[in-house]
C-alpha cells in the first residue's frame, strides 16, 4: 500500500483549475519527483497535501487515513513535513532556535529539542552557523536550514519545494548528498524540482504535471523519452 495517495484531486481558484483530477501514489522509501513547467500546479498540489488548501474535489490519503481537510499542523504531526519554494526561515531567530522550534513538536523537554536540533544541524552541515541569525544566511544554507527544520518535526514523508533552485554547483552537490542520506534514514521524499539533471539522477519515479493535469508518470529514463513530456517541458528547456 502506498504511503501517500493523491486521489483525483482538483483545486479550483475561481474558474481556474490549478490542479485538475490528479492521482498518484508515493511508496514508502521512494524519492518521487514532481515536475512540470511554471504554473503547472506543483506548489498548489503541495499546498493541498500539506493542508494549506482543501482540495475542491478528491482526497489525500496518508497511511490509509484521509488527511485532506485537516489543518496543516495536524498533518505535520501525522508525519508530513515540507519546505517552501520561497524560503521562510524564522528570520530573527538563530539557526539553532529555528530548528529547535520545530523539534519541540516531538520533543518533550528543552534538552531533547536542543539535542535533536544539534544532530540535524550536524547532518545538514549547518552546525558552525548555529548561533547566526538566520536572516544573514546565504541562500544555499537557508535552503538547507529549511530541510533541517522540516526534518526536526520527525516526518515520514518529506516534501521539498525547489530546494535546489538558485544553488551553485558546490551547494548543489552538498544538497544532493543530503537528500540521498535522508532517504537512507528511511524517510520518503516527494520533490518539486526544475533542475533536470538533479531530478533525473535522484528520483525513483517522476510525475509530470502540465496545466494542472498529470500527463505522465514513470521511471526517469522513461519520462526522458516520453514525447508528451518533451513537448510540454523538456522541449522548452532544450530550445532555451
Amino acid at each position: 500500500m502506498a504511503l501517500l495517495e493523491v486521489q483525483n484531486v482538483s483545486r479550483f481558484f475561481g474558474g481556474l483549475a490549478a490542479v485538475n483530477d490528479v492521482s498518484f501514489g508515493v511508496n514508502k522509501g521512494e524519492i518521487v519527483g514532481l515536475i512540470g513547467p511554471n504554473g503547472a500546479g506543483k506548489t498548489t498540489l503541495f499546498n493541498v497535501i500539506n493542508g494549506f488548501y482543501r482540495p475542491s474535489k478528491g482526497e489525500v490519503i496518508f497511511k490509509g487515513e484521509r488527511i485532506s481537510g485537516l489543518k496543516p499542523h495536524k498533518i505535520c504531526k501525522k508525519g508530513i513535513a515540507r519546505t517552501f519554494q520561497v524560503v521562510k526561515p524564522l528570520q530573527r531567530m538563530t539557526v539553532l532556535e529555528n530548528v529547535m522550534a520545530s523539534a519541540f513538536v516531538r520533543a518533550r523537554s528543552r534538552k531533547e529539542a536542543e539535542d535533536a536540533a544539534l544532530e540535524l544541524l550536524e547532518f545538514t552541515g549547518l552546525i558552525d552557523d548555529r548561533d547566526l541569525v538566520s536572516k544573514g544566511l546565504p541562500l544555499g544554507k537557508r535552503k538547507r536550514l529549511e530541510i533541517a527544520r522540516a526534518l526536526a518535526t520527525g516526518p515520514e514523508l518529506l516534501m521539498l519545494d525547489e530546494s535546489f533552485a538558485g544553488l551553485n554547483p558546490t551547494e548543489l552537490n552538498e544538497s544532493i548528498r543530503i537528500i540521498r542520506q535522508i532517504k537512507e534514514r528511511g524517510i520518503t521524499i516527494l520533490i518539486i524540482e526544475h533542475h533536470m539533471k538533479v531530478i533525473m539522477s535522484i528520483s525513483d519515479r517522476i510525475v509530470v504535471l502540465n496545466y494542472g493535469e498529470k500527463i505522465a508518470e514513470g521511471p526517469p529514463d522513461e519520462i526522458g523519452r516520453n514525447p508528451q513530456v518533451i513537448e510540454a517541458y523538456l522541449g522548452e528547456a532544450h530550445n532555451a
Binding site: 494549506f52 499542523h73 505535520c76 513535513a81 524564522l90 531567530m93 522550534a101 520545530s102 513538536v105 518535526t153
Partner: peptide
C-alpha cells in the same frame, strides 16, 4: 517567536 516570524511556516511545522 516562530508564529511572529512566519505564521504559515509555523503552522506547517506542526505548531
Amino acid at each position: 517567536v516562530a508564529i511572529r516570524e512566519d505564521q504559515d511556516a509555523a503552522e506547517s511545522l506542526g505548531i
